[in-house]
Computed example of a mutant assay.
Amino acid sequence: MKRIRIFLVAISVVTLFLAAESFARKGMSKGSGGWGPGTNYSKMYDPATVETIRGEVVGVEQITPMKGMSYGVHLTVKTDKETIPVHLGPGWFIENQDIDIGPQDQVEVKGSRITFDGKPALIAREVKKGEETLTLRNEEGFPVWSGARRR
């Protein structure tokens, strides 16, 4: 009887350990969904390449920029010079903001010009629509959805 109790206790301890490890891994993998400040994607933002564009939103899409990331939201903005993809940020963050940006909206976007999949794009720092401003990153490119953590 004593052996059975010891065996059951040992099984319980191992089960609890494995469950705790599983929950920890699940939580760690979710995090910012690959959109955090130390990720390869986030490192593409370069404050030295920041510019401002103005134009009309001609599309809003969900994209997954890199393998292993959660989906994000990007705009396609038509300016007087080009039509360019504008990466906003993770879907879970963008979809919880008060500002609604859609096709035919006139916007002003400040962001870092990058080359993404061999084509020009912007990683947005802020998007203005009328009197509303959606702030996505600080001047150094640190994402606002990452809270108080610093690089």
Rank of each mutant, 00 (worst) to 15 (best):
R3P: 04
I6Q: 05
L8N: 04
V14R: 08
F17Q: 11
F17W: 15
L18V: 05
A19K: 01
E21L: 09
E21M: 13
E21D: 11
S22D: 05
S22F: 03
A24V: 06
R25L: 10
R25Q: 09
G27Q: 04
M28A: 05
M28S: 01
M28G: 01
S29G: 08
S29H: 09
K30W: 13
G31T: 14
S32F: 15
G33R: 03
G34M: 07
W35S: 05
G36C: 05
G36L: 01
G38Y: 04
G38L: 12
G38D: 04
N40E: 09
N40W: 12
Y41S: 05
S42L: 07
S42T: 09
M44W: 01
Y45R: 02
Y45K: 06
D46H: 09
D46Y: 00
P47E: 04
T49M: 08
I53Y: 00
R54A: 10
V57K: 03
V57C: 03
V58T: 13
V60A: 13
V60N: 13
T64R: 07
P65Y: 00
M66Q: 14
K67P: 03
M69S: 04
M69I: 10
M69D: 00
Y71L: 05
H74F: 14
T76G: 03
K78I: 07
D80I: 07
D80H: 03
K81S: 09
I84L: 11
P85F: 13
V86Q: 09
H87Y: 15
H87A: 03
H87G: 06
L88K: 04
G91R: 06
F93S: 00
F93R: 00
D98A: 08
I101M: 13
G102M: 00
P103V: 15
D105N: 09
V109F: 07
V109H: 11
K110C: 10
K110E: 15
K110M: 14
K110D: 07
R113K: 10
R113M: 03
D117M: 10
K119R: 06
P120T: 04
A121T: 15
I123M: 09
R125T: 02
V127K: 10
V127A: 00
K128I: 02
K128Q: 14
E131I: 10
E132I: 12
T133D: 04
T133G: 07
L134S: 10
T135S: 07
T135Q: 00
L136D: 01
R137W: 05
N138T: 06
N138R: 02
E139G: 08
E139W: 06
E140M: 06
P143N: 01
P143G: 08
P143T: 07
W145E: 07
W145Q: 01
S146C: 11
G147D: 06
A148D: 15
R149C: 09
